[in-house]
Structures are given as structure tokens and as C-alpha cells.
Amino acid sequence: MSETPDKSNKFVRTHPAWFVWLRQPSSVVFSFVLLVGYAFLLLPDKETASPIVFYASINIFIVLVLAFTGMVLADNKKPEILKMFAALLLIAVLCWLFYRYSGAEWGRLKDFFFNWETLEGNWWILWQGLEVTLLLAFISGIGSILTGLLIAVLRTLHSPTLNFFLKIYVDVFRSIPMIVVMVFIFFALPFMGISLGSILTTVLALSLGYGAYASECFRAGIESVHSGQLEAARSLGLSRWKTISKIILPQAIPVVIPPLTGTLVAMLKDTAVASIVAAPELLKRARELYTSETNPTPLVAAALIYLAVLIPLVRAVNLLENKLQKKRHTQNE
């Protein structure tokens, strides 16, 4: 027992041999060749193979491809270019499988999804729809910001009774789907003799609903202001309202802007729901075109327009968040 343990081997990895091999470049090449071979030789034909063999074979293939890309992506010693290649390969393989086995009539893709001729002379309808969408989002955005701010400021009064009712409002509108509110206002309220048009219905529903979300954003921002600020302001003789407007809100709003913008982007997306109450916004107009042309290309165009408008906004929210995070870091140093 006087034998001294070998100190030099104390921290040496003890992985099994196969695991060590997996991290070598040769394993990547070998597995890739194996996969290509599988794809050509073992993948069955849909018509001739028995269902069990067919599904088993395809599933094994998918698992192997996932294992291969997983192995490459998880190894942080492998170069990024190889990981990008593996990821693209995975996407390509899945697309190819879908193309080969889904049974869709691919010859009609161009005719029905990308038949831009159906939109010739009709683009103005989509642009008009986009205008209505943006207008709805703008007005509802203002509505929900004001609603949210009002609720958040009222909650700073810390009145238990008031808070009870405000919490009920916020919880109800965060729980109920937007589409239900719109359908109720548009289709149910007329029975009571209250008929709001489709535009007003949308603005009202979105303002009420997203006002609840916005109030939570504002509340988080207000709560992020240190209580010492409030005490300092009050000890100087500032009234409650002056304290909120001069001290609390100027500090809360920079904190609130990223999550609030995120909420408003979500609201802009939700304007599409207004198409079911016949508000003439982008999706509704695209569906009209789809019906009149009996071709789904307008729907594809609408989707692309939504993407073109929303992706920059989503990126912007992200940038704002990063900026705030950086500011907080420098403040904490």
C-alpha cells in the first residue's frame, strides 16, 4: 500500500476508444460516406416496399442523419464551417425526403404558389391591405400603450381594492385569446344593439388585450426603479404625481422600451386575426384575391410581406435589448 499513485495520470481523460475515434476528422468522412451509401442503396421505393420496412428504413435513416449532425455540432473543437455544412446537410436531407415521399404534386408548385401573373394589376389591393394593417397596428399600439401606462401608474398607488380590480382586468385579457374577444365584439354584441364596425372592433380588442400586456411591461420597469429614488423625491416635498412623472417614469421608460416594443410587434402580427371580422387588412385582402383568382399565390405574397415588415422590427427589438443589457453591465461595474 506504499505504492504512490501516478500523479501524471491523475487528470487524464478516460473515454472509451469509440468516443475518442468519434472526435477524429476521419470519423466525419466515414459517417458521411456511410449516409450517402444508405440513401442510395437502402431507402426503399414507396410503391413496392412493405409499410413496415418502408417506415423502419426511413426512420433509421433520419435518426442516423440526426446523430451525424448532432455529433458534428456538439463537438466544439470542430471548425464552424464544418458545422454549417452539417446543418445545411440536415436541412437538405429532410427537404429531399419530404420531396421524395410526401406525394405532393411538385409540378404544380410554380403554378399555384409562385404564379406572379395572378398578382399582376392586383398588387395595389395588397398594398392597400398593408396600409390598413399598419394603421390598425398604429392606433391599437397607441391605445395599448395608454391603457398599459394608466394601469401601471394606478398600481403604484398600492391601493388593495384598486389593485384587485386591475389584476382581474390584466389576468382576464392575458388569458382570453384575442380572436375570441374580436368575435365576441363583432358577432355577439350586435345582438345587444351594439354594433361596432370591423375596424373599431379590432382597435378596441387589440388595445384592451395588449394594454394588459403593456401594463405588465410598464410595471416591471417602474418596479426596477430603486425605492430610495421615491423616498428622496418624497422627502423633497414632491407630490405623488410629480414623483411619478419627473423621477419614476424617466428612469423606468428606457427599461420598458425593449419589452414594450416586443409586445407591440406581437400586436402587429395579431392584426391578421382581424381578417375574421372582415377588417380589410392584408390577410383579408389576400384571401379575397385568393378567392377571385382561385390561386393561393396571393397568400404566399401576403406571408412574404408580413416577413418583410416584421423581421426588421424583431431584429430591432433584439438590438434594443442588447443595448439595455450592456448599459446595465456598465452601471454595475
Binding site: G228, Q229, E231, A232, S235, L236, G237, S239, P250
Partner: peptide
């Protein structure tokens, strides 16, 4: 109370200056 507080200046342990 706000009028009373204008007669009493207060200085805090953590300064509580308005950072903005």
C-alpha cells in the same frame, strides 16, 4: 405633508441622487 417636507431636508445613506 408635502409642505411639511419642504421644511425638512433629508440626506440618505445611499445618496439617492436621481441618476437621469
Amino acid at each position: 405633508i408635502n409642505r411639511v417636507r419642504t421644511e425638512i431636508g433629508m440626506v440618505f445613506q445611499s445618496f439617492n441622487l436621481f441618476p437621469h
